[in-house]
Design a protein around this nucleic acid. Structure first.
Lengths: 159, 159
DNA sequence: TCACTAACGTTCGTCGCACTAACGAAACTA
DNA sequence: TAGTTTCGTTAGTGCGACGAACGTTAGTGA
């Protein structure tokens, strides 16, 4: 009857590995925001594209790809979904007939505002256990790490 | 020929999103360690399993799964690969014939030592831009975030 | 003892993400 | 005018996280 507390704990040498913790926290964060956005019939990429459009105006898909970090291959589907929902419009560029010009619609503007609030709440949820100043520190660290690895990375970059 | 600096910068509202930065840093970190381990013909999971075995002795696959966070479905392949390389042995448990007992071999012990050094170096590379005390802070934040989300998570947990 | 349930290892399949390859059309460049 | 590059697009790869289901074996209660 006596149980010897058989809880199989992850060894500390694994549990405390920064790269592992990083992956774990990123996963939880990703799940939180993805599920939150799903409740609004949206995805991370929708938000990224919409924000980029609002911030910098109409753009070609190639430009959007660079601004958001979404691969141009994957961007196709994102724009499709946003266009279906009436948040953006895809039109051929008369000046360069290879390109499409993606434009934010009024409905899209409304949506990005809604999503922005939602996302802000979700970030709070992600960082819940940290105090305000700690969140600043943490974000600062992340930004520095990101910048560092973005430079050295021979990889095509992504976010 | 003046160029209006057409560098398409990611808007700050995206670039500074914690969840996004988290994903980005985690990706870079993961790539670094994965590539590093690949050079030693190993993967993250190999290391996780080997460490868990060294730390807590021989175990069934179910137990290993809980200790390492590797799904039992995926663990099968990991043990296969480790067994192929002679680092572990998989034997049926005479006490419970449903189970396999996974045991670390002497070669496995050597390998886990090698990998541990390698991993330590790779962690340094990941955290390169941070000073020692900053790394401590950062790791502390990660640990707190992880613990927080592990509790509330109805998700089966993973690292 | 006998049905019921639960655990174990395993296989197969799914979903999403990062990423590559290739292609036709259009645009630049020599 | 020929060669190269860019753009949007389709298809596909590799991997990590995860679920479903199955046969086998162990425990559990009537």
């Amino acid at each position: 009857m006596s149980m010897t507390d058989d809880t199989p704990a992850t060894p500390a040498s694994l549990r405390l590995l920064p790269s592992r913790m990083l992956a774990g926290v990123a996963m939880h964060a990703d799940r939180l925001v993805s599920e939150g956005l799903a409740r609004a019939d949206a995805r991370k990429w929708h938000y990224a594209a919409l924000v980029a459009l609002r911030e910098a105006g109409p753009a070609s898909q190639a430009e959007l790809s660079k601004r958001t970090g979404i691969y141009r291959s994957d961007l196709v589907a994102v724009i499709n979904e946003l266009a279906e929902r009436g948040f953006v419009e895809r039109a051929p560029d008369p000046a360069d007939r290879r390109r499409n010009v993606i434009t934010l619609t009024p409905e899209g503007l409304g949506q990005v505002r809604r999503l922005q609030e939602l996302i802000a709440d979700l970030q709070d949820e992600v960082l819940a256990p940290l105090s305000r100043p700690e969140r600043e520190q943490f974000s600062g660290f992340l930004a520095r790490l990101l910048e560092h690895h973005a430079r050295r990375g021979s990889s095509p970059e992504q976010g």
